[in-house]
């Protein structure tokens, strides 16, 4: 097991972690704010991926590589719109019933997956990455594909944007206020319902952007979201609910462990071992790496 191999695995792990992190951000946001677990969150990734495919189909012939700059807003807005509709029609009716929300969103996830199968077939549709992403960077003996570097940069950019939004903007202040105490924030004039809707749509949109990254790396198929969702949940659980920093650390950790373990054993064993490791971790720190001290969380 030489250095080159390990470095390569770590790099792959980092790019997987990037997508995981983008997927987990939305989950953590809506869970932190509404105590809602959205089992259909993975499907926002899927929708983002398919919208990228469509952008490449429609805009590719005229814009060439420029389709990517159509894909980003399309994926973000498309997923965000879907998220907003979901929040408005289902999730807000189940307020205070987290387990029921989990079931209902699981149903939505089944419907969306089947719809994707109907529209695009069950085999993956390929998206050709722009030519300027087709090369690779070589550092010493390690080859770093540009596509994966791009995905990592994308995750960092989105993470930075979210951090700014949550910690520096008026919107973020309201989100943090509702996180701390929903009643108090409402009494102070925050429109909590509208905020729920916005945050949910934002989380969905970010997952849609993650879908663009995913489409650049691998073909998009109807179960691509389901494949990521459990790990994204684990990122939220390990990172500490409602903590962006904890989530980022957990995503990187999980990505590394998976990539390294895959290098040494089979993929399936690595996955199984990782899941067991997470359960063991919760014995040690049941509230995650960076716990949020909030009374309301204890009821979740």
């Amino acid at each position: 097991m030489d250095f080159t191999f390990i470095a390569g695995q770590l790099f792959t792990g980092l790019s997987v972690a990037s997508i995981l992190l983008l997927a987990a951000l939305g989950l953590a946001l809506s869970f932190g704010l509404m105590r809602v677990i959205n089992m259909a969150h993975g499907e926002f990734l899927m929708v983002g991926g398919y919208l990228t495919y469509l952008a490449a189909q429609w805009a590719g012939p005229t814009l060439g590589d420029g389709y990517l700059w159509v894909a980003f807003p399309l994926a973000f807005l498309g997923s965000a719109l879907l998220g907003a509709v979901m929040e408005f029609t289902v999730i807000r009716r189940l307020y205070g019933r987290p387990l029921d929300t989990l079931l209902a969103t699981f149903g939505i996830s089944l419907i969306l997956q089947q719809a994707a199968r109907h529209l695009f077939g069950s085999t993956g549709v390929p998206v050709t990455a722009p030519t300027w992403l087709s090369g690779a960077l070589t550092v010493g003996d390690v080859t770093l594909p540009l596509v994966r570097l791009f995905v990592i940069a994308l995750a960092l950019a989105v993470l930075g944007g979210m951090w700014w939004l949550l910690n520096r903007s008026r919107f973020g202040m309201q989100v943090r206020a509702v996180n701390a105490s929903r009643e108090m924030a409402a009494a102070l004039g925050v429109n909590t319902r509208a905020l729920d809707l916005l945050v949910f749509a934002l989380g969905a949109g970010v997952a849609g952007v993650a879908g663009v990254g995913l489409a650049l790396i691998a073909p998009v198929n109807p179960t691509v979201g389901a494949a990521y969702i459990v790990n994204a949940f684990l990122v939220v659980v390990v990172g500490g609910v409602g903590s962006v920093l904890g989530g980022a650390a957990a995503a990187v950790l999980l990505g590394f462990v998976t990539a390294l373990a895959e290098g040494f054993t089979s993929v399936s064993l690595a996955q199984a071992a990782l899941l067991l490791l997470v359960v063991a971790f919760l014995q040690w720190k049941p509230r995650g790496l960076i716990p949020t001290t909030s009374r309301a969380l204890e009821d979740a």
Partner: peptide
């Protein structure tokens, strides 16, 4: 709560 749901699902997956 939902933690239990996720952990049980993860264990089954493992």
């Amino acid at each position: 709560g939902v933690y239990v749901s996720i952990i049980t699902q993860a264990l089954l997956l493992a």
